[in-house]
Write a protein that binds this DNA or RNA. Structure first.
Lengths: 211, 211, 211, 211
DNA sequence: CATGAATGAGCGTTCATTCAT
DNA sequence: GATGAATGAACGCTCATTCAT
């Protein structure tokens, strides 16, 4: 169904329209970033007039927050689905990473709307962004805590390592966008090896493989 | 303003004015982010009229690029100064990380203007940002390549690991801003242990210390 | 809303709906004024959908006119009921004033929707406002004419005095809203004394009391 | 100097531009009322771009307040100049009223921008309006207090009479706008007679004349 | 060298009003 | 009879940028 078709169709129920609008907003925000995206373009892409957006999703900031929320939730759920606590610790981490890169590879727009934005904490519009990022770190932190229990790593330490790990994954995902020929599994595997074996280990020829 | 008054105004040489302006711009950009910073505020903080800024530094985007360039160069130089190739590989990495966190801790404004910005690659204003980030990755990559030579890690692999490492450091720096009680050395040491020993090693009780 | 639900909804007769809507509109207009009142809020308060308002009462301007008409008519009727021509001239005026302040005191909403609006004659929406105000002046004028017949006050003069008197009453009503402790009768009595005895008379100790 | 000429003239000093803008704003506000006046039209009439208005006078509300302040101050000063305390009480009042109608007759725009607006106290934009009106009432109150000292009229009573008198004058001014053939002095004289002799006195043939 | 004055262009937001069901 | 869905049109406001002095 093309945009023109959609424009001619009238009186859709609210939730359908909301989904249309959110889809359009994700597309535009991911292409242009928050500031350079205009409500006009979003309404055009959605095939809906601007007042509908305000009626259903509120202000630009609200709309952005809704996008972030939906997309980040999907990503987090994908990752959480990979991390099954009945697995061996290293396998939990591995499946989490694999799920992350799998998701990023198959949902570029989703990833971009989440990640390619300012994280200046001053700006009010990034509240949702920070919240979701904190959730991501919490998820990883919980994983690390389970793994590292009673190993002398205090809460503070595991949280910082979780933050580092999340940052590493984000940054590697970005690198991947510029080097798309590498398969998802390979990228995940590289990060897995780095964080599990350490560079020291790698240098000495050690490596980790899913067993 | 009368002619007499004007005579009393300091006619500063160009490079001094440029420094004034850049300093002000760094302050404002770091506080507000690129989009929310206004040329008016920058000119106010600099104590200079707006046309001066345009005459000396060009457009807002140019000005931002100049800020990023100056501050990122300083950071990179600080890190590069830590990484001395005559050292043992692990010590090179260690001193690089230590220098990084030391710099971030003592130059918050500088760090914020570099990092707390959108990295949406669509936007033209972030050209310099991406360039400097690529330089950072190159720097780390070179280090890793020296370390890992002939270990089966190809160029592509080390570059991706370098990207991951840079991202981990950035993210950890952010975490640190929210947890400022942890000393710089401790933060650096945590990341060093993660990337050198791997989580697997840490779990088994291994750890790395500067020797 | 399913078909069953719809059947359960009350299908009220037209005049009941109109009264509902007018009541709501009076409330909202009196609170917010014409411009700041939104059709959305009115329809909310009325518990009726917007298209109903348009179907029954026409445009926003029409709706406002209907409000003004209804409320001003009630006020005028209250005052006219006080002015009984079989009374002595001064008693007519007195009872008219007393009725006015009595009405204002007991129908604040009504008074506010009538009075706290722009009277800019350019605006088309105030046609009814001006009409009703002219009626008020006519009412008073008729009273003055009866009182002052053959006293050298020509038509033009009594009409202007009627306008002055109406303005005095309006303004005093406003003052009263900010000083609600004064009883209705006292306020009316003050105005009665002013316009009957004159300030010159009051200064000399004269005063008027209902006898 | 026509608008076109003005538009071609460049780089006027700030205070000149501010006066131009205020003049234009008074014209437009008086014609259309606050809400129906658009900043676009004001900037057109002023021969200035909109950003200048915001730079010099602030928001629409600020601009309106500035208009009200300037015009109401002029009116109050004109009236206050008429009321000279060395005169006999009745003559003070008379000259005040005469000055009021004289001003209204010769400055219609000024009067309309002051008076033909909503006085809904809810709206934030009318703060200045209420303030100036309170000043007017205070001015009259002071006069009445001087006149009526020790006559059994308490503060509360004189203030209410002052409010009534101000309202009567406003309303009569409005009536006058629709009946412009009556000379200013005659209008003033009618109100003077009403409030000084009272209607009771007038009916009995008494009348007040400046002696 | 330096600046106050000035604006084109665009954005987020709102609201009275109407259509399709 | 009644309503949720939908929009055209306009408005207040801001900002990077450039003249004229």
């Amino acid at each position: 169904m093309t945009v023109e078709d959609r424009r001619r169709v009238k009186r859709l129920p609210r939730d359908v329209r909301e989904r249309q609008i959110l889809d359009a907003a994700v597309t535009v925000f991911s292409e242009r970033g928050y500031h350079d995206a205009s409500m006009d373009e979003i309404s055009d892409v959605a095939g809906v007039s601007k007042p509908m957006i305000y009626a259903y999703l509120g202000s630009k900031e609200d709309l952005f927050a809704a996008c972030i929320h939906r997309e980040a939730t999907r990503l987090l759920e994908a990752v959480a689905a990979g991390v099954r606590t009945e697995l061996r610790p290293d396998m939990q981490l591995w499946h989490g990473l694999a799920a992350f890169f799998e998701y990023v590879g198959t949902h570029r727009e989703s990833w971009q709307v989440i990640h390619r934005q300012s994280i200046s904490q001053g700006g009010p519009y990034s509240e949702e962004l920070l919240t979701m990022r904190r959730q991501a770190i919490s998820l990883v932190d919980a994983l690390l805590v389970r793994v590292a229990t009673s190993e002398g790593l205090d809460d503070n330490a595991t949280e910082s390592l979780a933050a580092a790990l999340v940052g590493a994954a984000e940054s590697l995902a970005d690198w991947w966008l510029d080097n798309p020929d590498v398969p998802s599994r390979v990228v995940a595997s590289r990060l897995m090896n780095l964080v599990w074996m350490g560079f020291g280990g790698l240098v000495e020829g050690a490596s980790w493989h899913p067993s």
